Simulated scan of single mutants.
Amino acid sequence: MNDSWFKISVIDGAINICLFLEMYPECSINDAIERLRTGPVSLACYDYQKAQALGELVGWETFSVEGSRCEKLRGILKSMLIYFQPFWARHSYLGRDKVIVFLNDNALQCLKIAGLLESPLSDAVMTWWEGIGRFFRSIEESRKLQIGREGERKSFNYEKIRLRNELITREPEWIALVDNTANFDILSYKRFPGDLTSESELMIEVKACTYEPKSFILTRNEWLKAIESPNSYMFHIWNLVKNELTVLTVEQMLVHIPSNHGNGKWETVKVVLDY
């Protein structure tokens, strides 16, 4: 597990190896570890076996950070977080307290010794958390984009098959790929019941998730687009894990839409489907 690398005995072991090799560059890493293990008790107690594996994994330059003890640890931890991306660090863009609740004792000790749990926060510590949060926010946004695109791909393929089965010769268009401001994702076509000759456009807004119950965020602009043409707009909601599609009309979505009050206007709404 990625969390297992976040132990102060491992990190300090890697730091000690680097310091030793700076003093005795003619030594190999194995020689350095052997001499550290048989040296003073204060240096012999670290987990050098795992420290060697860590250094070879993330690069020894990670542990050659200049500065005070806290500054070194902060730089090392930042590099390790970016490399391993442990579960708890992925919540850092939500704030430090959201990270702490997921930490095991070893990771908690690392952050504490690095001064990253101090209160009130110093400028240096605020800058550290801000940088980590910004990195993992970009990761999360990229993940959500990939989930959304996968849902759109599934709806695009679903519509190709549906049109073919209904003997509609036109092909769907993946609008979101060419215009992400259109407030719908797929342009398809449909026939009204009893009319086998004429076709009308069908705008489809696609949402996707990877959990139960299915939930998604709907924006005000998407809803305003939907109610412009309620008979020509549809919602596709995918559970990607189950490869399960829920199709909702504008009328069916209406029950989930909040009301404006006073001078306030809703901008986004989280819709949870209890299916």
Rank of each mutant, 00 (worst) to 15 (best):
T62G: 11
D123C: 12
G133L: 02
L81G: 08
W128H: 10
I139D: 02
Q85E: 15
I100Q: 05
L121K: 04
R137D: 14
G75S: 09
W60V: 02
S64Y: 07
E61D: 15
T127M: 09
D105N: 07
K112Y: 03
I132Q: 08
C70L: 04
D97K: 11
P120C: 06
F87Q: 11
E130N: 15
L121Y: 06
L111N: 05
W60D: 00
N104E: 13
E66Y: 11
L77S: 13
F87M: 02
S68D: 05
E61K: 05
I100V: 14
R69S: 15
I139A: 02
L145H: 08
V65R: 12
R74C: 11
E118W: 00
W88G: 01
P86T: 07
C70R: 12
N104Y: 10
P120T: 05
D123I: 15
P120Q: 06
C110R: 04
S119H: 13
F136P: 08
R69H: 15
N104M: 10
L145P: 00
E71I: 03
I82Q: 13
S79I: 00
I76P: 09
H91A: 10
P120S: 04
E140N: 12
L121R: 03
S142M: 11
S119M: 11
E140V: 08
E118H: 00
G95P: 09
